[in-house]
Design a protein around this nucleic acid. Structure first.
Length: 317
DNA sequence: ATCCAGGTTCAGG
DNA sequence: CCTGAACATGGA
């Protein structure tokens, strides 16, 4: 890879069967990419610091970061948390599930190397507010445009030249954004832009931020209520925020894909009808009866990814 | 051309 | 409590 002197290296052994590529591009994160100068490396900016990741083998990966050597231990700890290595993927699908759905289990098994990540709450809120009834390609484009316009520009010097990255915008940067300017980044959807600004203001005021701090202990229903107060956040997006941004692996978002596999794989009749709030809750209950309560969302994401790859034959993440 | 893509909200029966 | 429309764009 390109040699950048300001970067220091950390090696992490995950002790887990870990598919870095599938994890980063399974649709839970839209902020990772591969740049030309760093072939084989995935890069992103977290907390305005650049990180480059590459997998060495199925359990080991290396990280290049802008931190000093002394902070490598913290980096190691951070990524263990970020990729949720405390969660044992072998405990996600119960033995009952494995017995009741043998063919499905055979297909899903390899996809347990997809980790569900603990990402920044605010970033996840904005990201999934951009994810309404459009494809992932467009979601990714919106998120990068938002970062390029409102995030901090970060330049990395390499022998091959400068490389430009953008941090994710702070709540205050989006809170003070001009609606029609932000709409240029939200697929020209002015309602969405206005919703994001209002949410950012709520976050900045401390109301939403505080709810995130206590999100670990609070029950899911209360958490959803706090999130759904905001225009543009319904049940599904609230569940995505809980799952991907607040480490609530019990949250089970139901989108068009999940709805499809709930019918095709589990024969749940309600999954053929439209996703009204009432039906959404019924479907969640039935899904939890199959996948368990603790890690329903974690399992759901693995099924989601498996469905898109194996059944829908989607190439692009 | 038509339908679908990680939905939500609002009006009307 | 239900459906349909509006919001917007791009890929298959």
């Amino acid at each position: 890879m390109a040699d950048a002197k300001e970067l220091s290296k950390t090696i992490i052994k995950s002790h887990r069967n870990f598919d870095l590529h599938a994890t980063l591009f399974s649709g839970q994160s839209f902020r990772w990419s591969q740049k030309e100068n760093f072939s084989g490396y995935y890069s992103t900016v977290i907390d305005n610091k650049i990180f480059l990741l590459r997998s060495i083998d199925s359990t080991t990966f290396e990280i290049f970061s802008q931190s000093k050597e002394a902070f490598c231990l913290q980096i190691s700890d951070f990524f263990r948390w970020y990729f949720a290595f405390d969660i044992d993927e072998n405990s996600i699908f119960s033995s009952d599930f494995q017995r009741d759905y043998p063919e499905l289990w055979r297909m899903v098994k390899p996809y347990r190397s997809v980790r569900v990540m603990r990402q920044e709450p605010f970033e996840i809120m904005v990201t999934f507010m951009c994810a309404q009834g459009i494809g992932m390609h467009l979601i990714r484009r919106q998120v990068s445009m938002i970062a390029e316009r409102y995030g901090q520009k970060i330049v990395l010097e390499t022998p091959e030249g400068e490389m430009v990255f953008y941090g994710f915008p702070t709540p205050s940067a989006l809170a003070s954004a001009d609606p029609s300017e932000l709409a240029l980044c939200t697929n020209n959807n002015r309602i969405r832009a206005a919703n994001i600004i209002a949410m950012a203001r709520s976050f900045e005021s401390g109301k939403l931020a505080l709810a995130c701090v206590g999100s670990g202990e609070c029950d899911l229903e209360t958490l959803r209520e706090t999130l759904c107060v905001h225009s543009g956040i319904g049940l599904k997006i609230a569940d995505c925020i809980a799952l991907f941004g607040l480490g609530r692996f019990d949250a089970f978002p139901i989108d068009t894909h999940v709805k499809q596999y709930l019918w095709e794989w589990f024969g749940i009749e309600e999954a053929r009808r439209s996703l009204t709030e009432k039906n959404y809750r019924i479907l969640q209950e039935k899904a939890r009866a199959i996948l368990g309560t603790e890690c329903a969302g974690y399992a759901g994401h693995i099924l989601f990814h498996c469905w898109r790859k194996e059944v829908k034959k989607m190439k692009a993440f």
